[in-house]
Write a protein that binds this DNA or RNA. Structure first.
Lengths: 232, 232
DNA sequence: CGCTACGTTGACGTCCCTCAATTTCGGTGG
DNA sequence: CCACCGAAATTGAGGGACGTCAACGTAGCG
């Protein structure tokens, strides 16, 4: 289910680090593939966590909803990123929903496959732990940000992060290469689309960025860094 | 280093779940103990993560600092809770600081001991993963809260949580049994001590709570639930 | 070419932060 | 035991950041 060219990619991923070739073959043998159209969901928040995914192509949003319909956008997943690591945990349910924002293709492993892999590959659980601990740290940082910093800084940081994850060099600067509405940015930074719109307009006037419909191009990253770091 | 009475406690802790008695003995054999006065630190944010702790007595604050001196209070640890699970991860540093708020006693395992345990007890890494995934979920929830809810709701929720974790029945209601300043509550909920003070005064006037210096007693939990759930 | 979703901008309100003045509480030492 | 000190807490005034709502552009798509 994984073609040989993919094996090289697998080796780059922290989750599959320090595995022998035979272990990697085992891993690929148990993988399945699933492809989704834009706007379809890999899974919904609250579903039993039965599959672990590795995105091969496309983009995926991880969204969390509250009981009263509020939602936030926790992260954007790009190619060769793993998501739904929670599937490794006994009896867990997905704590977020995963929605494709473009036509997407993902490899996945079912619960059974994962249990087999964990049993046979001793380092796997440790690698998973490492990923989770990075996630914990990231969320701790973002909690502090959200609790103590104002919208401008959070938005600047979000754009820089997106730029480094999904940035693409274009003549005008660095294009954030995914469909990204003002609403999306608002849900990522804990504000409203109006505030995002105002701030982006202001930054555009200062020539820090270039905006368009569901599009942001960073012209002077350093301008954003200055705002993110709260410098003069 | 662990007396037999403690073994019974260990079995209750998710991290040590599904272990044989011989494995548990192994675990206890490798434990060491450390006791701290109030205000001392078990470790500081940024230190290499070399020990995993299990609090036996006392209270510990987990604090995160930003470069510019802002800080938030991520969680309060009570007896028989594990903290610094990140020590299981290769090369990690502590992402938060752990400060005793009372005289405290903790068992700990060093990196070496942990590596030995992980090698010999296959389920350990999975248990750790489970703890971490719970932590990830908790932080995701709190991110959404912080991003979408106003201070009153967050504060009500924080008090309810503290009440269920560290609540002690007293004649007047449920006492949150730890020294808890307005500043602490502010750092837990992402606001200022002034706002906390105002809200608590207001709730006291409505007879929902009783406050004192570094003390909160919940008289009518349902009043807080109403606020936390945003009911009429 | 018109529909729809996305985006912009203004006016207005409010939640909450900031700062200052004052009070209360608890511990300490005379 | 009381006086005193410092830390914690309260309260008020004022302002600013940001949310809310409405009206109006605008781009993409059928």
């Amino acid at each position: 289910m994984i073609d040989p060219a993919d094996l090289a990619h697998l080796k780059e991923i922290p989750f599959f680090q320090r595995m022998s070739d035979s272990e990697l073959r085992k891993v690929s043998a148990l993988a399945r593939a699933r492809s989704l159209e834009a706007d379809e969901f890999f899974y919904l928040q609250g579903d039993p966590a039965e599959m672990l995914f590795l995105l091969k192509a496309g983009r995926v949003k991880l969204i969390q909803n509250s009981a009263d319909g509020q939602q936030i956008l926790l992260r954007m997943i790009g190619p060769w990123s793993l998501f739904a690591v929670v599937a490794l945990v006994e009896g867990a349910v997905y704590p977020v929903s995963a929605q494709a924002v473009e036509p997407s293709l993902a490899l996945y492993w079912t619960k059974n496959a994962l249990m087999e892999l964990v049993r046979e590959i001793p380092g796997l659980a440790l690698n998973a732990m490492q990923m989770m601990s990075e996630r914990v740290q990231e969320y701790q940082d973002r909690l502090r940000e959200l609790a103590t910093e104002r919208v401008e800084r959070r938005l600047a940081r979000a754009l820089l992060r997106l730029g480094s994850q999904a940035g693409k060099r274009v003549p005008e600067g660095i294009l954030i290469d995914l469909p990204l509405s003002r609403q999306d940015l608002a849900e990522m930074t804990g504000t409203t689309l109006f505030t995002v719109s105002r701030i982006l307009s202001q930054w555009e006037a200062q020539n820090i960025i270039l905006t368009g419909r569901e599009k942001v191009i960073i012209r002077f990253p350093h301008g954003l860094v200055r705002i993110a770091e709260d410098l003069p």
